[in-house]
Design a protein around this nucleic acid. Structure first.
Lengths: 208, 208
DNA sequence: CGTTTTACCAACCCATCGGTCGGTTATTCA
DNA sequence: TGAATAACCGACCGATGGGTTGGTAAAACG
């Protein structure tokens, strides 16, 4: 992680450009954000921006790739685990929350993609892939008897990750540890909101 | 509900125009949908479309109003109820799912608004209002001891309704009763995914 | 020093978009 | 039949957007 001491006139690097673009895409929406807006946010002109990136779609493509890659890394890591499917499902939820917190801006953008271009359609396809993976895990956990079987597995998976994904709407990294949030999400999803007959094994916990 | 037998040349009414517009807004995104696209979907020209509506923003405004109105009607109905806050919270979730299913396209659009214009900012403000209302209900339910108190009420409310709102991403009215779905959501949110020591009081249930 | 490399910019191009204007066609009512 | 009413259309306009062109300024390397 040393400074590679690049040649030529110093300026913005691709990561900074991408970060600025994604921030704008998320606040105003992808279509509502012009390349002029992105350039302005970086303090450069539009033509200079095109010196760094090939076009608007490349920015979107890079952003959703970072989100998707993070999610699939987490999924692969979980699939390497052994043990009951219920625990693996729990781990998948937990690590999804962590990836979401860590790559918040990228995942936010990913979750808003509509499928208008090939880039967007590819992103949607990968999301569906992740969905299938989660649904399979739910099915296994049900077969094991670890989680309730009176709910359609696809429905359960969608609701579960719908809850996880909704984080992008309000989570802000500056306040609160992602780990505590992940634990809360898992607790809520698996044990429910309702008060359980006092078992005393779970201490009172506060976050945010 | 009788036909009012309107004068002049017959054609599309406002509801049909709105429905077509909202469908396109949801599939392609609001900004990515042109007024030409809307007109084309209705089989009329752009100038004729402007005979029906004052502008693109009016379409958005009408759509989000229908969504917000439905949600607040449900909330008002729930607030008129007496009984424990936990039950009222349950009812709010349930009726939210039903409104969401019934006005799917409008609610979908509402949930995607980013706050770019005054219309959108107004919609966001109403959404926050609903959020506050839900958070208060969670707080009350916690004070009553009906739901777990080891989670921040705002976080719980957001996760809960994040799960509810995620329905717009996959629910399609053609298949499955909304009532069964609402029951599933309530069950999952309040009792959790995890298998409870067999109590036998809940029959196996399937939906979709 | 001059060459290479990289960042940068002003001006321009053209397609698209939201919206307007002036007129036409179909229907109801008297 | 003819006025009133409402739906409809072709042609146009100004603004904005993504992207291009043809250069200039600043740093590193030899």
């Amino acid at each position: 992680m040393d400074t590679p001491r690049r040649r030529g006139r110093p300026g913005h690097d691709l990561d900074a450009v991408l970060a600025a673009a994604v921030r704008l895409f998320n606040t105003r929406g992808y279509d509502a954000t012009s390349m002029f807006d992105v350039a302005e946010a970086l303090g450069i002109t539009k033509s200079t921006l095109y010196h760094h990136v090939s076009g608007k779609e490349q920015l979107l493509s890079m952003a959703v790739d970072r989100a998707v890659d993070g999610l699939f890394e987490a999924a692969a890591h979980v699939q390497d685990l052994q043990g009951p499917a219920t625990v693996r499902l729990q781990k998948l939820v937990e690590s999804s929350v962590l990836v979401l917190a860590e790559r918040l801006e990228f995942v936010t953008l990913l979750l808003r993609v509509r499928g208008n271009t090939q880039v967007e359609q590819h992103a949607l396809a990968r999301r569906r892939e992740f969905d299938t993976l989660a649904t399979e895990l739910v099915k296994q956990a049900q077969a094991e008897g670890g989680i309730r079987a009176d709910v359609d597995p696809a429905t359960a998976a969608r609701l579960l990750f719908g809850m996880v994904n909704s984080l992008v709407e309000w989570y802000r990294p500056e306040r609160g540890h992602p780990e505590a949030l992940a634990a809360t999400v898992v607790r809520l999803a698996f044990d429910g909101l309702r008060t359980i007959a006092v078992t005393g094994d779970q201490a009172t916990q506060e976050e945010h």
